[in-house]
Design a binder for these strands. Structure first.
Lengths: 234, 234
DNA sequence: CAATGTGAACAGTTTCACAGCT
DNA sequence: AGCTGTGAAACTGTTCACATTG
């Protein structure tokens, strides 16, 4: 049965990244017995403005009730639908080094609609090793044995190998890549890449710490309608 | 000696995250014997437009030479200066689980201007364990022994502990936090937070895979001046 | 003449303010 | 009365086009 959502607009890229946050908050509230959430409460807990919450949620259809807020169950289901939870996504992790093993072992990463269908490494000495119940195999074995295509490839190999591994993952059908290697990948326009570069994260933080003037106490809440993101008063 | 850079504007947030990419590319080229880089070449390798490269670089001062391009050595030094490489940054990793251990062990993460001054965990059974030469200690031991303040805290604890750990890290002086826990942190305005939420990354990717129409071959290179980001033709 | 640096046009997001339901 | 949904305004970042410089 298809859930009756209102018309859906295009969802902006930043909004797509925020929806799962709202979803997690709604799930937490539901678990603590709350059936309904307002945009103001979601905004406070997600550290965004209430208006932004409403704009984001209106993009996936009218899930709220005026005067009441959003029904937590409907909200969770609506976001699931928008994020592609309707099917199982086949994930391959490439690279069984520190990071690859950590990701496979992290509870909450490869769960629910994401199924790990391969953990591969080019180092023969790692082959056969078990990582949280998953055997490390060679890329060749995966290519030989794969009946269905891969959906998502996670790249945890050194930078020097990243492009090659990306190409092979795309060859296995992956149209989405999550890249942890410190390289910019070159892929066709049909492939989506999201990169997480750990060393860059540190550099961005130290840039701010260096460049920021002591950010002068925020000017006492203006007359605007919605309350802004709160942060924490020091 | 202070390098003579031109005036510096404010650097936009996205630009700050791109600068280290240009820097890495410049270092690679320099290593392969190239002394000079053009914005076009940087753009090709970083998968951004040449105009964006120039705008980004002009924000950290005029480092280029018209007709020639950017001197690789000067470019690397200029970006180092902009990113805060002028001093050492004291980093504490909180959480010695899968991810925390992987980060500490990952070569290329805690290097150069970033110094690991603590790896802490609340689990007593982990205390004393060595991770890549760093001993796991308790938060209490770190608090007792810390003479100088912490600059950057890296949060690798479960979501349920993240806020508490963030507060303690801020208490140790951290004004920058890198958060891998699936929680939105509430901190004062003097604290910068960057969050990497692994499960959200997968959801964003599956959203695109689900929602994207086959993205229709890009309209044959327009008449514009600069070449756009290339990607790879399929 | 090649390639930077940059004002101006453009595009995408966020914020505002309020009309419209419940 | 309370809270959503949404046009319009404001803002931020990107792209364009070209004057400028070595």
């Amino acid at each position: 049965m298809v859930s009756r959502t209102g018309r859906r607009r295009r969802i902006s890229e930043p909004a797509v990244a925020r929806l799962p946050i709202y979803q997690r908050i709604a799930a937490d509230l539901l678990r603590s017995g709350q059936q309904t959430v307002s945009s103001a409460q979601l905004g406070r807990l997600a550290d965004v403005t209430a208006a932004k919450v409403r704009k984001d949620l209106s993009a996936i259809g009218s899930l709220g009730t005026r005067g009441t807020g959003y029904d937590a169950v409907a909200l969770i289901a609506g976001i699931d639908a928008a994020m592609g939870a309707g099917r199982t996504w086949r994930v391959v992790v490439a690279g069984a080094g520190n990071l690859g093993r950590a990701l496979v072992s992290t509870s909450g990463f490869l769960v629910e609609p994401y199924e790990l269908v391969g953990l591969v490494d080019s180092d023969p000495s790692l082959l056969g090793e078990l990582v949280s119940g998953h055997e490390v195999t060679s890329f060749e074995a995966l290519e030989a044995g794969a009946a269905e295509p891969v959906d998502i490839g996670v790249i945890c190999v050194p930078g020097s190998a990243a492009q090659l591994v990306a190409d092979r993952l795309v060859g296995l059908g992956a149209r989405s890549l999550l890249n942890f290697a410190p390289r910019v990948l070159s892929v066709g326009p049909e492939v989506h890449v999201r990169s997480v570069d750990l060393s860059i994260e540190l550099k961005v933080l130290s840039h701010h710490a260096q460049a920021d003037p002591p950010p002068a106490e925020s000017p006492g809440a203006g007359p605007g309608a919605d309350a802004g993101p709160s942060g924490r008063r020091p």
